[in-house]
Protein backbone atom coordinates (compact mmCIF):
# COMPACT_ATOMS: atom_id res chain seq x y z
CA UNK A 1 0.00 0.00 0.00
CA UNK A 2 2.87 2.30 -0.62
CA UNK A 3 2.33 3.80 -3.98
CA UNK A 4 -0.53 4.75 -6.15
CA UNK A 5 0.28 1.84 -8.34
CA UNK A 6 -0.17 -0.76 -5.68
CA UNK A 7 -3.42 0.84 -4.73
CA UNK A 8 -4.51 0.50 -8.28
CA UNK A 9 -3.48 -3.12 -8.18
CA UNK A 10 -6.07 -5.76 -8.79
CA UNK A 11 -8.43 -3.26 -10.28
CA UNK A 12 -11.82 -4.29 -11.37
CA UNK A 13 -12.46 -2.73 -14.71
CA UNK A 14 -10.02 -1.16 -17.04
CA UNK A 15 -11.08 2.22 -18.21
CA UNK A 16 -9.41 2.54 -21.52
CA UNK A 17 -11.48 4.22 -24.08
CA UNK A 18 -10.58 4.27 -27.67
CA UNK A 19 -10.31 7.99 -28.28
CA UNK A 20 -9.95 8.68 -31.94
CA UNK A 21 -12.88 11.05 -32.53
CA UNK A 22 -12.18 14.21 -34.52
CA UNK A 23 -13.10 16.28 -31.53
CA UNK A 24 -10.08 14.98 -29.71
CA UNK A 25 -7.88 15.74 -32.66
CA UNK A 26 -8.34 19.48 -32.40
CA UNK A 27 -6.61 19.85 -29.06
CA UNK A 28 -3.97 17.47 -30.30
CA UNK A 29 -3.37 19.64 -33.34
CA UNK A 30 -3.32 22.71 -31.17
CA UNK A 31 -0.90 21.06 -28.82
CA UNK A 32 1.41 20.23 -31.69
CA UNK A 33 1.25 23.53 -33.46
CA UNK A 34 0.12 25.78 -30.63
CA UNK A 35 3.26 27.85 -30.36
CA UNK A 36 3.26 28.27 -34.13
CA UNK A 37 -0.26 29.66 -33.94
CA UNK A 38 0.79 32.02 -31.17
CA UNK A 39 3.68 33.11 -33.38
CA UNK A 40 1.33 33.79 -36.30
CA UNK A 41 -0.95 35.75 -34.01
CA UNK A 42 1.99 37.84 -32.88
CA UNK A 43 3.01 38.49 -36.48
CA UNK A 44 -0.54 39.50 -37.33
CA UNK A 45 -0.66 41.80 -34.31
CA UNK A 46 2.60 43.49 -35.24
CA UNK A 47 1.45 43.87 -38.83
CA UNK A 48 -1.63 45.69 -37.65
CA UNK A 49 0.22 47.85 -35.13
CA UNK A 50 2.96 49.08 -37.41
CA UNK A 51 2.95 49.45 -41.17
CA UNK A 52 6.69 48.85 -41.40
CA UNK A 53 6.59 45.35 -40.00
CA UNK A 54 5.10 43.17 -42.69
CA UNK A 55 7.34 43.48 -45.72
CA UNK A 56 9.99 41.19 -47.15
CA UNK A 57 12.92 43.36 -46.11
CA UNK A 58 11.87 43.63 -42.52
CA UNK A 59 10.95 39.96 -42.27
CA UNK A 60 14.33 38.97 -43.66
CA UNK A 61 15.83 41.41 -41.18
CA UNK A 62 14.05 39.71 -38.29
CA UNK A 63 15.07 36.22 -39.32
CA UNK A 64 18.66 37.35 -39.74
CA UNK A 65 18.66 38.86 -36.29
CA UNK A 66 17.41 35.67 -34.65
CA UNK A 67 19.74 33.39 -36.60
CA UNK A 68 22.56 33.83 -34.14
CA UNK A 69 20.65 33.13 -30.95
CA UNK A 70 18.53 30.57 -32.80
CA UNK A 71 21.48 28.33 -33.57
CA UNK A 72 22.67 28.50 -29.97
CA UNK A 73 19.14 27.69 -28.82
CA UNK A 74 19.09 24.51 -30.91
CA UNK A 75 22.02 23.12 -28.97
CA UNK A 76 20.43 24.25 -25.75
CA UNK A 77 17.27 22.40 -26.80
CA UNK A 78 19.15 19.10 -26.95
CA UNK A 79 20.63 19.83 -23.55
CA UNK A 80 17.33 20.74 -21.94
CA UNK A 81 15.61 17.68 -23.39
CA UNK A 82 18.11 15.57 -21.44
CA UNK A 83 16.97 17.45 -18.33
CA UNK A 84 20.16 19.49 -18.33
CA UNK A 85 20.90 23.18 -18.73
CA UNK A 86 23.67 25.13 -20.42
CA UNK A 87 24.55 28.49 -18.92
CA UNK A 88 27.88 28.77 -20.66
CA UNK A 89 26.76 29.66 -24.20
CA UNK A 90 27.00 33.45 -23.82
CA UNK A 91 30.54 33.42 -22.47
CA UNK A 92 31.52 30.73 -24.93
CA UNK A 93 30.49 33.01 -27.76
CA UNK A 94 32.99 35.57 -26.48
CA UNK A 95 35.78 33.00 -26.15
CA UNK A 96 35.24 31.56 -29.63
CA UNK A 97 34.93 35.08 -30.98
CA UNK A 98 38.30 36.35 -29.78
CA UNK A 99 40.16 33.15 -30.66
CA UNK A 100 38.69 32.91 -34.16
CA UNK A 101 39.18 36.64 -34.79
CA UNK A 102 42.86 36.44 -33.90
CA UNK A 103 43.34 33.92 -36.71
CA UNK A 104 41.19 35.73 -39.24
CA UNK A 105 43.32 38.74 -40.14
CA UNK A 106 43.64 39.22 -43.88
CA UNK A 107 46.45 37.19 -45.44
CA UNK A 108 47.29 35.43 -42.21
CA UNK A 109 45.75 31.98 -42.42
CA UNK A 110 43.39 30.29 -44.83
CA UNK A 111 39.72 30.74 -43.91
CA UNK A 112 39.27 27.20 -42.65
CA UNK A 113 41.72 27.80 -39.81
CA UNK A 114 39.63 30.31 -37.83
CA UNK A 115 36.47 28.38 -38.70
CA UNK A 116 37.76 25.04 -37.47
CA UNK A 117 39.33 26.66 -34.44
CA UNK A 118 36.08 28.41 -33.63
CA UNK A 119 33.84 25.36 -33.73
CA UNK A 120 36.63 23.31 -32.20
CA UNK A 121 36.94 25.58 -29.17
CA UNK A 122 33.15 25.58 -28.80
CA UNK A 123 32.92 21.81 -29.03
CA UNK A 124 35.82 21.34 -26.63
CA UNK A 125 34.23 23.58 -24.03
CA UNK A 126 31.01 21.60 -24.50
CA UNK A 127 32.96 18.39 -24.07
CA UNK A 128 34.23 19.66 -20.73
CA UNK A 129 30.72 20.72 -19.70
CA UNK A 130 29.40 17.27 -20.54
CA UNK A 131 32.24 15.33 -18.98
CA UNK A 132 32.14 17.28 -15.76
CA UNK A 133 28.42 16.90 -15.37
CA UNK A 134 28.10 13.29 -16.56
CA UNK A 135 31.23 11.70 -15.14
CA UNK A 136 31.83 14.10 -12.28
CA UNK A 137 28.19 13.86 -11.21
CA UNK A 138 28.10 17.64 -10.83
CA UNK A 139 24.71 19.14 -11.72
CA UNK A 140 24.88 20.72 -15.19
CA UNK A 141 23.70 23.99 -13.68
CA UNK A 142 26.90 24.21 -11.67
CA UNK A 143 29.19 22.69 -14.28
CA UNK A 144 28.09 25.12 -16.97
CA UNK A 145 27.98 28.02 -14.53
CA UNK A 146 31.65 27.33 -13.92
CA UNK A 147 32.28 27.27 -17.65
CA UNK A 148 30.36 30.52 -18.03
CA UNK A 149 32.71 32.30 -15.65
CA UNK A 150 35.86 30.57 -16.84
CA UNK A 151 35.19 31.08 -20.56
CA UNK A 152 34.54 34.79 -20.06
CA UNK A 153 37.77 35.07 -18.09
CA UNK A 154 39.69 33.18 -20.76
CA UNK A 155 38.26 35.44 -23.44
CA UNK A 156 39.39 38.53 -21.55
CA UNK A 157 42.78 37.03 -20.85
CA UNK A 158 43.30 35.96 -24.44
CA UNK A 159 42.31 39.34 -25.86
CA UNK A 160 43.71 41.44 -23.05
CA UNK A 161 40.23 42.84 -22.66
CA UNK A 162 40.26 44.47 -26.08
CA UNK A 163 38.37 43.86 -29.31
CA UNK A 164 40.28 42.09 -32.07
CA UNK A 165 39.47 43.72 -35.39
CA UNK A 166 40.88 43.80 -38.92
CA UNK A 167 39.27 40.62 -40.21
CA UNK A 168 39.53 39.23 -43.74
CA UNK A 169 36.70 39.77 -46.21
CA UNK A 170 36.12 36.07 -46.65
CA UNK A 171 35.61 35.75 -42.90
CA UNK A 172 33.31 38.76 -42.80
CA UNK A 173 31.12 37.09 -45.41
CA UNK A 174 29.88 34.72 -42.70
CA UNK A 175 28.09 37.53 -40.94
CA UNK A 176 27.25 40.07 -43.57
CA UNK A 177 27.38 38.30 -46.93
CA UNK A 178 24.42 36.96 -48.81
CA UNK A 179 23.59 34.23 -51.29
CA UNK A 180 20.86 34.86 -53.90
CA UNK A 181 19.79 37.90 -51.92
CA UNK A 182 19.39 35.93 -48.69
CA UNK A 183 21.73 36.89 -45.86
CA UNK A 184 24.23 34.13 -45.15
CA UNK A 185 23.30 33.79 -41.43
CA UNK A 186 19.73 32.95 -42.44
CA UNK A 187 20.96 30.21 -44.76
CA UNK A 188 23.08 28.75 -41.99
CA UNK A 189 20.21 29.06 -39.51
CA UNK A 190 17.79 27.20 -41.75
CA UNK A 191 20.33 24.61 -42.83
CA UNK A 192 21.50 23.88 -39.29
CA UNK A 193 17.86 23.89 -38.19
CA UNK A 194 16.97 21.25 -40.76
CA UNK A 195 19.95 19.10 -39.83
CA UNK A 196 19.29 19.36 -36.13
CA UNK A 197 15.63 18.61 -36.65
CA UNK A 198 16.47 15.45 -38.56
CA UNK A 199 19.05 14.51 -35.95
CA UNK A 200 16.68 14.99 -33.06
CA UNK A 201 13.55 13.49 -34.49
CA UNK A 202 14.77 10.71 -36.70
CA UNK A 203 18.01 9.25 -35.53
CA UNK A 204 19.17 6.98 -32.78
CA UNK A 205 21.03 9.92 -31.27
CA UNK A 206 17.85 11.98 -31.11
CA UNK A 207 15.70 9.20 -29.70
CA UNK A 208 18.27 8.50 -27.03
CA UNK A 209 18.27 12.20 -26.15
CA UNK A 210 14.55 12.04 -25.46
CA UNK A 211 14.92 8.76 -23.61
CA UNK A 212 17.52 10.12 -21.20
CA UNK A 213 15.42 13.17 -20.42
CA UNK A 214 12.25 11.09 -20.14
CA UNK A 215 13.70 8.64 -17.65
CA UNK A 216 17.41 8.28 -17.14
CA UNK A 217 17.13 5.00 -15.24
CA UNK A 218 14.94 3.44 -17.89
CA UNK A 219 17.34 4.68 -20.55
CA UNK A 220 20.21 2.85 -18.88
CA UNK A 221 18.15 -0.32 -18.78
CA UNK A 222 17.41 0.08 -22.49
CA UNK A 223 21.13 -0.26 -23.04
CA UNK A 224 21.83 3.43 -23.64
CA UNK A 225 25.28 4.62 -22.58
CA UNK A 226 23.91 7.63 -20.74
CA UNK A 227 27.20 9.24 -19.75
CA UNK A 228 28.66 9.08 -23.21
CA UNK A 229 25.46 10.41 -24.71
CA UNK A 230 25.31 13.37 -22.34
CA UNK A 231 28.89 14.26 -23.17
CA UNK A 232 28.01 14.20 -26.85
CA UNK A 233 24.95 16.38 -26.30
CA UNK A 234 26.93 19.07 -24.49
CA UNK A 235 29.64 18.86 -27.11
CA UNK A 236 27.04 19.40 -29.80
CA UNK A 237 25.70 22.42 -27.93
CA UNK A 238 29.22 23.86 -27.72
CA UNK A 239 29.77 23.16 -31.40
CA UNK A 240 26.59 25.02 -32.39
CA UNK A 241 27.51 27.89 -30.09
CA UNK A 242 30.83 27.98 -31.96
CA UNK A 243 29.06 28.33 -35.31
CA UNK A 244 26.91 31.13 -33.98
CA UNK A 245 29.92 32.87 -32.44
CA UNK A 246 31.78 32.80 -35.76
CA UNK A 247 28.88 34.46 -37.57
CA UNK A 248 28.38 36.98 -34.82
CA UNK A 249 32.07 37.86 -34.87
CA UNK A 250 31.85 38.41 -38.61
CA UNK A 251 28.69 40.47 -38.18
CA UNK A 252 30.35 42.95 -35.83
CA UNK A 253 33.66 42.49 -37.64
CA UNK A 254 35.60 42.05 -34.44
CA UNK A 255 36.28 39.45 -31.83
CA UNK A 256 35.06 40.86 -28.56
CA UNK A 257 35.50 39.48 -25.06
CA UNK A 258 32.42 41.37 -23.90
CA UNK A 259 30.17 39.74 -26.47
CA UNK A 260 27.21 37.51 -25.76
CA UNK A 261 26.42 38.68 -22.25
CA UNK A 262 23.12 37.06 -21.19
CA UNK A 263 22.78 35.26 -24.52
CA UNK A 264 22.50 31.97 -22.63
CA UNK A 265 19.25 33.18 -21.12
CA UNK A 266 17.87 34.27 -24.48
CA UNK A 267 18.74 30.86 -25.88
CA UNK A 268 17.08 29.06 -22.98
CA UNK A 269 14.06 31.34 -23.34
CA UNK A 270 13.79 30.55 -27.06
CA UNK A 271 13.85 26.82 -26.33
CA UNK A 272 11.33 27.05 -23.53
CA UNK A 273 8.98 29.33 -25.48
CA UNK A 274 9.24 26.77 -28.26
CA UNK A 275 7.83 24.10 -25.98
CA UNK A 276 10.97 22.50 -24.58
CA UNK A 277 10.25 21.36 -21.06
CA UNK A 278 12.76 21.95 -18.30
CA UNK A 279 11.57 18.69 -16.76
CA UNK A 280 13.10 16.80 -19.67
CA UNK A 281 11.97 14.56 -22.49
CA UNK A 282 10.00 17.20 -24.38
CA UNK A 283 11.03 19.64 -27.09
CA UNK A 284 11.55 20.04 -30.83
CA UNK A 285 13.88 22.00 -33.08
CA UNK A 286 11.12 23.69 -35.12
CA UNK A 287 9.56 24.73 -31.82
CA UNK A 288 12.80 26.30 -30.70
CA UNK A 289 13.20 28.09 -34.03
CA UNK A 290 9.71 29.52 -33.58
CA UNK A 291 10.60 30.45 -30.03
CA UNK A 292 13.63 32.38 -31.25
CA UNK A 293 11.48 34.06 -33.90
CA UNK A 294 8.95 35.12 -31.28
CA UNK A 295 11.70 36.88 -29.36
CA UNK A 296 12.98 38.42 -32.59
CA UNK A 297 9.55 39.63 -33.70
CA UNK A 298 9.02 41.20 -30.29
CA UNK A 299 12.34 43.03 -30.37
CA UNK A 300 11.80 44.21 -33.92
CA UNK A 301 8.14 45.16 -33.60
CA UNK A 302 8.65 47.12 -30.40
CA UNK A 303 11.65 48.94 -31.92
CA UNK A 304 9.63 49.79 -35.02
CA UNK A 305 6.83 51.17 -32.93
CA UNK A 306 9.36 53.27 -31.03
CA UNK A 307 8.25 51.88 -27.69
CA UNK A 308 10.42 53.23 -24.89
CA UNK A 309 13.21 50.97 -23.75
CA UNK A 310 11.75 50.66 -20.28
CA UNK A 311 8.40 49.54 -21.59
CA UNK A 312 10.06 47.19 -24.05
CA UNK A 313 11.57 45.20 -21.23
CA UNK A 314 8.33 45.00 -19.33
CA UNK A 315 6.29 44.04 -22.40
CA UNK A 316 8.80 41.46 -23.54
CA UNK A 317 8.77 39.77 -20.16
CA UNK A 318 4.99 39.78 -20.01
CA UNK A 319 4.50 38.47 -23.55
CA UNK A 320 7.02 35.67 -23.16
CA UNK A 321 5.43 34.43 -19.95
CA UNK A 322 1.96 34.69 -21.49
CA UNK A 323 2.99 32.71 -24.56
CA UNK A 324 4.45 29.91 -22.46
CA UNK A 325 1.44 29.98 -20.17
CA UNK A 326 -1.00 29.56 -23.05
CA UNK A 327 1.16 26.83 -24.47
CA UNK A 328 1.47 24.88 -21.24
CA UNK A 329 -2.22 25.11 -20.44
CA UNK A 330 -3.21 23.61 -23.69
CA UNK A 331 -0.60 20.90 -23.21
CA UNK A 332 -2.28 19.94 -20.00
CA UNK A 333 -5.63 19.57 -21.66
CA UNK A 334 -4.35 17.43 -24.48
Amino acid sequence: MKTEETIAKKQTISHDRDRTGWKEKIPELFSRYGIFLIFLALVALMSVLTPHFFNVYNLINVVKQVSFIGIVAMGVTFVIITKGIDLSSGSLIALVSVIAASFAHPGDYPLFVPLLLGVGVGAFAGLINGTVSAKGMIPPFIATLGMMTAARGLALLYSDGRPIGNLSDSFLFLGSGDLFGIPFPIIVFLFVGLLMHLLLSNTKFGKHTYAIGGNEQAARICGINVDRHLILVYTLAGFLTGISALMLTARISAGQPSMGVMYELDAIAAAVIGGTSLTGGIGTIPGTMIGALIIGVLNNGLDLMNVSSYWQQILKGAIIVTAVLIDSRKNKKA
Partner: peptide, 20 residues
Protein backbone atom coordinates in the same frame (compact mmCIF):
# COMPACT_ATOMS: atom_id res chain seq x y z
CA UNK B 1 7.50 4.89 -13.22
CA UNK B 2 10.97 4.84 -11.76
CA UNK B 3 12.85 2.58 -14.13
CA UNK B 4 10.52 1.52 -16.90
CA UNK B 5 8.43 4.01 -18.81
CA UNK B 6 9.57 7.20 -20.49
CA UNK B 7 6.56 9.09 -19.23
CA UNK B 8 6.78 12.20 -21.43
CA UNK B 9 7.26 10.12 -24.57
CA UNK B 10 4.80 8.41 -26.88
CA UNK B 11 3.77 4.78 -26.92
CA UNK B 12 5.78 4.28 -30.09
CA UNK B 13 8.96 5.80 -28.71
CA UNK B 14 8.59 3.80 -25.53
CA UNK B 15 8.40 0.62 -27.56
CA UNK B 16 11.40 1.12 -29.80
CA UNK B 17 13.89 2.48 -27.30
CA UNK B 18 15.76 -0.70 -26.42
CA UNK B 19 16.13 -1.96 -29.97
CA UNK B 20 16.57 1.10 -32.15
Amino acid sequence: KLTGAFLPLSVKENMIMSGL
